[in-house]
Computed example of a mutant assay.
Amino acid sequence: MTSSVELTLLIVYALSFYLFIIHRSLQIARDHYAKLYGLRSGWIFHRFNDVSDAQWRNFRGNLMILTLVFGIFTLVATSCRKYGLKAKGMSVVWLMVSLVYLTYLHGACVLYILSIASANFLLVKICGRTKFVFLLWIFNLTFLICNRVYEGYPFSLFGQNWAYLDNYRGTFRWHICFNFVILRMISFGYDYHWANYSNRFDKEKHIQRCSNCSSGRTCYQLLQERSLENGKFSFTIYLCYLIYAPLYIAGPIVSFNAFASQLDTPQKTHSLKKVVWYGLRWVFSLMLMESMTHFFYYNAFAISGTWKYLSPLDIFIIGY
């Protein structure tokens, strides 16, 4: 059998498989939607929308404020750079805007974020220049587990005098977003450690081998791997890195070195065309997610327990 025939058979198989999955998913959604939790009136063909997942529901509900925040950030960034603000100045601006944004999201729970972040900063400054940097992992993993076990720590745990703050916990669960913050805290700690203890990255050899760097531009790997001067590891830049609003909820995660380097000079690796194309891909992904939650109620089946009464084939489709 030739490779072209094999490819044709694989394509036919894949199309048949997914067409069947889509057909059956639509059928079970139509037959059982009345028994499902978390369905709301939708905007696509007047179908119900599956918003049973808390993270997706929160993200979708705050999409307008997210868009507004990103617009403000773009405007502020352009304005500040015209006045020649560098890393420390830019970090103060970002920090102020991000704190306003976090207060809207988490309300009084911002106190938890700032407290844990401050403790981590002190730990890094104490242990970062030693071989005991592994304590950073223990500290962060401990809080990662405790945050979930105690569901973000009700203020009533600390006494009834603080219980009233539980009425001001914002619109988004802080301990869910804090998973990304923990990754950033670890990144800060290890970048500080490697800057002061050991760094095997050969900058000159990298520039010779990298097409971007050899042409005068700076690639992301160089931003990420090269060590920064100690002045960049300040508390202001650190806190700005942790809660930088455009990357706060969904990332992507960047290393502290790369983030701090780009406070001075914006990235030049990706052209405007690539950035626009990335934006279009994001819009397509959003529309795809909206379509799936309007037509296929997979998560609603899972949390409603209705899947228990379905056939093995239907359970496979929902799980798949």
Rank of each mutant, 00 (worst) to 15 (best):
Q262W: 02
W174D: 11
V69M: 15
T78W: 13
R169G: 02
G319K: 01
F259G: 05
L36A: 00
Y33V: 13
I317P: 02
Y153H: 11
R57D: 05
V51I: 14
L157D: 03
I237W: 03
H175A: 07
N179Q: 05
F188W: 11
R184W: 07
I186R: 11
Y101R: 07
S41F: 03
G107R: 01
F143Y: 06
L222P: 02
K273G: 02
N49A: 06
L228D: 09
L286P: 05
V276T: 08
L239F: 10
F139C: 03
F178L: 10
L95Y: 09
I28V: 15
I303D: 01
F134G: 00
Y192V: 06
A302M: 04
A29Y: 07
Y33A: 13
W277T: 13
V124I: 06
Y192G: 06
R81M: 07
I44S: 05
Y298C: 04
N199L: 09
N199D: 11
S234E: 04
V5H: 04
A34E: 11
F235N: 07
K82C: 10
Y104M: 00
S227Q: 08
K232M: 09
R217M: 14
R200A: 08
S198M: 03
S91A: 14
W162L: 15
A87N: 06
N49V: 06
C109A: 09
L272P: 05
K82P: 06
C80H: 03
L222G: 01
Y190E: 08
F45R: 04
L223S: 15
Y241I: 03
S4W: 12
F59H: 10
M289L: 12
Q160S: 09
L239H: 02
L63R: 02
